[in-house]
Amino acid sequence: MLKEITLGQYFPGRSVLHKMDPRMKIILLTVFIVFIFLTKNYVSLAIMVVSVIFVILFSGVSLKLYFKSLKAIIFIVLFTSVLNLFYGTGDPLFQWKFITITQAGINTSVFVAARIISLVLISSVLTYTTSPTDLTDGIEKLLKPLSVFHIKIHEIAMMMTIALRFIPTLLEETDKIMSAQKARGADFDSGNAMTRIKTLIPILIPLFVSAFRRAYDLAMAMESRCYHGGEGRTRMKVLKYSKYDYIALCVVCLLCIGVIICNIRLPITLRTGM
């Protein structure tokens, strides 16, 4: 069950997206997400959705992994879009007792579904094609200006690196503990919500204890390897913008212009904010 969580996992590869600078990827991702939510008609939505599909194909990561990342949110997508279906205003297309479905409702639910799915997919592209160290490096560099306000950017970035590094390790451990507790007769699948929450305690306590033990070991290993904070630290991989970054920047700019033009020139389908 836990093996299916792919969030925050990196899949090494040699695609153009792998070669891009993490800073550029983060910036472009942010812009991309903003524009996904700025789409106001089907043409501009289509531009974004098609480009998401192209980005995925370019990433060189198996499509299966993207489906996996969608599996986790499919319920939220269905729930919100079905809910939106009934909340449209305007002339009803279909009416049965208190259920009314309008064109506006259909539009909203299609937009909501397409936006959430695109959002998750495009974010997955970032984590799948960027090694966690690159990612935190990029964040560290981008947030550097904040150190003016005495925010410890290096420490935050290091914590993120370590957290990402230990996700698979701790997931594996959780699986082991669950099996061990099942072998002792623990039942995780029956009872009401309260009993189910209670059955988590025998998993969480050993997990916490071992996480602290790991943290102690890791701190010792880091000290042994001369870690003494961000001061005077160099990096093996120096971040540098390459031609791929500039090409990607141009492509995203063109997309954004396309979306803006479509929003202005074509009739607006979606009037509500979300």
């Binding site: 966690p132 890791l218 390897r225």
Partner: peptide
């Protein structure tokens, strides 16, 4: 070995 590797790669 799990507890002393700092980076994922």
């Amino acid at each position: 070995p799990d507890n002393q590797l700092v980076a994922s790669i």
